[in-house]
Amino acid sequence: SLHNSGLSGHNIKIGIMDTGFDTSHVAFARMRSENRILTTRNFLDGGNDVMGVPGGQRRHGTEVLSVIGGFDEGNLIGTAFGASFVLAKTESLTAEIQAEEDYWVAASEWMESLGVDIISSSLGYIDWYDTTQLNGHTAIITQAADIANQLGVVVVNCAGNEGGNIHWRKVVPPADGDSVIAVGAVNTDGFVSYFSSQGPTADGRIKPDFCALGEQDRVAASDNGGYGFDNGTSFAAPLLAGGIALLLEEHPLWRISDILANLKRASSITNHPNNAQGWGIPNFVNAINMEPYSPQRSLLIITPQPARDSVVFNMIFSSASTAILTVYDLSGAKVQEWDETATEPSTVIKVWDGRNRSNDKVASGIYICVFRVGDNNIRQKLAYFSR
């Protein structure tokens, strides 16, 4: 229904880290022709080649990418087939090692620096953790996911396929993060898959957050250039992440809290969440037609995006209050800051000439703008080009 209404994820940037990607597959022909593979990076081997040679290494990543971004009418249409993608190869098939977690962290930092809106990850690590550490702040990968979220990136991760593992059963990091949208698997009848990892977290929170189809998902097959079917929460996660891309395309000012709250309100067991399926299966048609969860709130709108030389900050105050607007570079250093006051609900406009607190022109790059008003910290990314 949302595709028929014209939504496809257009102008939404999605980062995916996985085993590699056969981007030559016909499922990605439209993506290639429209130059929507923005950039790639191989954290495993170095360089930018994420395809590698034909074989098993790139199978999983190819399937995951096809579920969210593929388009071959009559064979497969991904949930966000019109989105743009940043692809990272971080996962090895030969061994499960801690370096892979480090690659994931590095890839998430890289993706955030490029301005992705969503990270869709179908990876997770348990070999060097135990279930008592699933508290949302112990696992390194979970900490990295939470940082990305704080910087404005929606992080969607598979819940994991440990439901049948008597030694674990629980969600896999980073799905234990309180800001990470963890996705479990259901079959075509809507029943939870036996393998789908469950909650609660070690500190008692419900996980997963939602479920999506994770059995008999239609995928692009990298070994023969055709199509097939596969099972796992690895495919439930990109299905749902693509739906979130459609929400952001329709509602670009929605915050992560709006997305999460409205999906919970629009899901199949919204009033009775549990640790097998979270809030259930979201109805994105219902979610997209909802009002923001906190409609009376202050906002920060930055124009133009990207900005060249000068930037206009539109600070929308929902009530009389004082606020601080701060610009940070990606290292976290404070670049510029202003104090603003509104005596009534209003919009205060600030034009920035791109100079720092020492009155020097700043370099081109990605900056983080934080609008602090009352108890709210509103974050927006700014792409700035200096002449």
Score class of each variant (00 low, 15 high):
residue 41 R to T: 03
residue 44 L to K: 01
residue 45 D to G: 06
residue 46 G to E: 04
residue 47 G to T: 01
residue 48 N to S: 09
residue 49 D to N: 06
residue 49 D to Q: 06
residue 49 D to S: 05
residue 51 M to C: 06
residue 51 M to P: 00
residue 52 G to C: 08
residue 52 G to K: 06
residue 53 V to P: 00
residue 53 V to N: 11
residue 54 P to R: 07
residue 55 G to Y: 05
residue 56 G to T: 03
residue 56 G to K: 00
residue 57 Q to F: 08
residue 58 R to H: 10
residue 58 R to A: 06
residue 61 G to Y: 02
residue 62 T to K: 03
residue 62 T to M: 00
residue 62 T to F: 00
residue 63 E to C: 03
residue 64 V to G: 11
residue 65 L to M: 02
residue 65 L to I: 02
residue 66 S to D: 09
residue 69 G to I: 00
residue 70 G to I: 06
residue 70 G to Q: 05
residue 71 F to Q: 05
residue 71 F to K: 03
residue 72 D to Q: 13
residue 72 D to E: 14
residue 73 E to S: 13
residue 73 E to H: 04
residue 74 G to D: 07
residue 75 N to R: 10
residue 76 L to V: 08
residue 78 G to S: 11
residue 78 G to C: 13
residue 79 T to V: 03
residue 80 A to S: 09
residue 83 A to L: 03
residue 84 S to Q: 12
residue 87 L to V: 05
residue 88 A to Y: 01
residue 89 K to H: 03
residue 89 K to D: 06
residue 90 T to D: 02
residue 90 T to H: 01
residue 90 T to R: 02
residue 91 E to L: 01
residue 91 E to W: 01
residue 91 E to T: 09
residue 92 S to M: 09
residue 93 L to M: 14
residue 94 T to W: 14
residue 94 T to N: 11
residue 95 A to C: 04
residue 95 A to S: 11
residue 96 E to F: 12
residue 96 E to R: 05
residue 98 Q to I: 05
residue 99 A to F: 09
residue 99 A to L: 07
residue 99 A to T: 05
residue 100 E to N: 09
residue 100 E to W: 02
residue 102 D to W: 01
residue 102 D to P: 07
residue 103 Y to V: 11
residue 105 V to D: 10
residue 105 V to I: 11
residue 105 V to A: 11
residue 107 A to Q: 03
residue 107 A to T: 01
residue 109 E to S: 14
residue 109 E to C: 15
residue 110 W to K: 08
residue 111 M to D: 13
residue 114 L to G: 14
residue 115 G to P: 13
residue 118 I to Y: 04
residue 118 I to K: 12
residue 120 S to K: 00
residue 121 S to H: 00
residue 121 S to M: 01
residue 123 L to C: 10
residue 124 G to T: 08
residue 127 D to L: 04
residue 128 W to Y: 08
residue 129 Y to N: 15
residue 129 Y to G: 15
residue 130 D to Q: 15
residue 131 T to R: 14
residue 132 T to P: 08
residue 133 Q to C: 06
residue 133 Q to I: 01
residue 134 L to G: 06
residue 134 L to T: 02
residue 134 L to S: 07
residue 135 N to I: 09
residue 135 N to M: 12
residue 136 G to M: 10
residue 137 H to C: 15
residue 138 T to G: 11
residue 138 T to A: 12
residue 140 I to F: 05
residue 140 I to T: 09
residue 143 Q to C: 13
residue 143 Q to W: 08
residue 144 A to R: 00
residue 145 A to F: 10
residue 147 I to L: 15
residue 148 A to C: 13
residue 148 A to N: 07
residue 148 A to I: 03
residue 150 Q to P: 13
residue 151 L to R: 06
residue 151 L to Q: 04
residue 152 G to A: 04
residue 153 V to C: 13
residue 155 V to K: 14
residue 156 V to K: 02
residue 157 N to T: 12
residue 157 N to R: 00
residue 158 C to G: 14
residue 158 C to L: 03
residue 159 A to D: 14
residue 161 N to P: 02
residue 161 N to R: 05
residue 163 G to C: 08
residue 164 G to Q: 11
residue 164 G to P: 01
